[in-house]
Simulated scan of single mutants.
Amino acid sequence: MSEKRLGALPVAAEFLRRLDVAGIVDGLCPGGASAHLTHGQVIEALVANRLMSPAPLVRVGDWARPWAVEEVFGIEPDLLSDDRLARALDAVERRYHDFKGPLAVTPVFVQHHRRVAALIQVICPALLVFCFIERQVRRALGPEQTMSGLYPDNRRVRPTGRMIFYHLGELTLRIGHVTDSPTVQITRGVPLHLLDVLDTDIGQTRWPQNCG
């Protein structure tokens, strides 16, 4: 039996599905199917990486292994090689060029401007998902938009996106034998409450499991 970090991956996956990020990317950047991954799937994985563990976009496969990326997104970590990421980012950058206008800003202190433009296309949907999650939690909490349990003193505060991801970051996925369903480990009520107000059923991700 082993464990993987789950964190807010199911929530990120659900909001990426609602926004149809993979479908939009694949529609704009066709022909990206390679090694069982489309450009849209790669961008989804990169957005999840930005939300869970912001770091330089290299060795993303190494990041994905201890996280439940394969169980949530159906993407094997070995497929997220630096070469595959570069090809997806290059494809996105070619379409990003179509949107450049009079407000285009020239990046500085970088070797390749086109790569910065592609990275912006990853950061933007990541920020969009981050803000949507914060907005939905606040709206679901009613007029006061506050909840308790986010701080040790249990005072009621307005949740921020950073707080939400921090508390969902406690979730882990316990993987048993081949015939057993993975089990989500929830030790406190705050993550469960957040999943409820986010209307995210972790039983409807791309892997079957039981809440433990």
Rank of each mutant, 00 (worst) to 15 (best):
R155Q: 02
A45G: 05
R17Q: 15
S81T: 07
D82E: 01
G176I: 06
L192M: 14
L16A: 13
P77N: 12
T205E: 11
L128P: 01
Q111S: 12
L141N: 05
Q209H: 08
H193L: 15
Q121P: 02
G23N: 14
V58F: 05
H167C: 11
Q111G: 13
S53Y: 15
Q185E: 02
V197P: 06
H36R: 15
E134W: 03
L57Y: 07
D98Y: 13
P66Q: 11
G176Y: 05
M52P: 03
L37N: 02
P182C: 06
V184P: 12
E71Y: 04
P66L: 12
S2V: 14
E71R: 04
T200Q: 04
P66G: 10
A33M: 12
H113S: 15
G169A: 12
P107M: 07
V42Y: 03
E71G: 05
L128C: 08
M147Q: 08
Q185K: 00
L141R: 05
V60T: 11
E144F: 05
V60E: 04
F165G: 03
R114E: 13
P125K: 07
V110S: 10
P10S: 15
T205S: 11
C124S: 10
R139F: 10
H193I: 06
L195M: 08
K100P: 06
S81W: 02
R115G: 04
S53E: 15
A12G: 07
H97Q: 14
G23H: 14
P10L: 15
V47Q: 05
D153E: 06
E14G: 09
H193C: 11
H39T: 11
T183E: 12
T172P: 05
F132Y: 09
I43H: 06
L171Q: 10
L46R: 04
A35G: 10
T172V: 09
D82R: 01
L37Y: 01
C29D: 00
R135K: 07
E3I: 12
T183Y: 04
R206I: 01
S2P: 11
A140W: 02
L198S: 00
P143A: 09
V42M: 10
L171E: 06
G32I: 03
R50Q: 10
L119H: 03
V108A: 10
C131M: 09
A33W: 07
R115C: 03
A117W: 06
L127M: 14
L6A: 13
E14S: 12
G203V: 03
S53H: 15
E144Y: 03
Y96I: 09
T200D: 06
H193R: 15
I75G: 02
V116E: 08
A68C: 12
R115Q: 09
C131T: 10
R174A: 09
D153I: 02
L37P: 01
H177P: 04
P56R: 11
E71Q: 10
